[in-house]
């Protein structure tokens, strides 16, 4: 399942996508995020999924644009335009870099 956490408002789209088929529930992303955006536990969207998966915590879902901004000042300034540098920066985000199976992606 591709779980899209975040929102869209007048200023743009801010989604963190977690691919729960790739996520192995290891929890490496949780300490990697300096602001506690991510958590690991029972899959909230699939009651029959036995293994734990990562998700964006409830407290952060409606404000990730602001919380994540400090990790990605350059990417935020681009407003979605992809460049060679931005693709590299995207890979180096703490949560994305910490995820070995590559289950976490950001939309902005």
């Amino acid at each position: 399942m591709r779980a899209n956490y975040g929102y869209k408002d007048g200023s743009g789209e801010y989604f963190i996508t977690i691919d729960t088929d790739k996520c192995n529930g290891c929890g490496d992303c949780v300490p990697a995020c300096p602001y506690g955006v991510l958590g690991v536990g029972e899959d909230p969207y699939d009651p029959f999924h036995e293994e734990p998966v990562a998700f964006v915590t409830e407290a952060q879902r409606k404000k990730i644009r602001y919380t994540c901004a400090s990790c990605k000042p350059y990417l935020t300034s681009l407003a979605g335009v992809q460049t060679e540098v931005s693709l590299r920066e995207m890979k180096n985000l703490p949560c994305v870099a910490a995820c070995k199976p590559g289950a976490i992606t950001h939309s902005w």
Binding site: M1, R2, A3, N4, Y7, K8, D9, F15, Y45, D46, K62
Partner: peptide, 12 residues
């Protein structure tokens, strides 16, 4: 009926 992708807008 198993969820494959979802998107929710509940901010506003």
């Amino acid at each position: 009926g198993k969820v494959l992708t979802f998107l929710m807008n509940d901010k506003c």
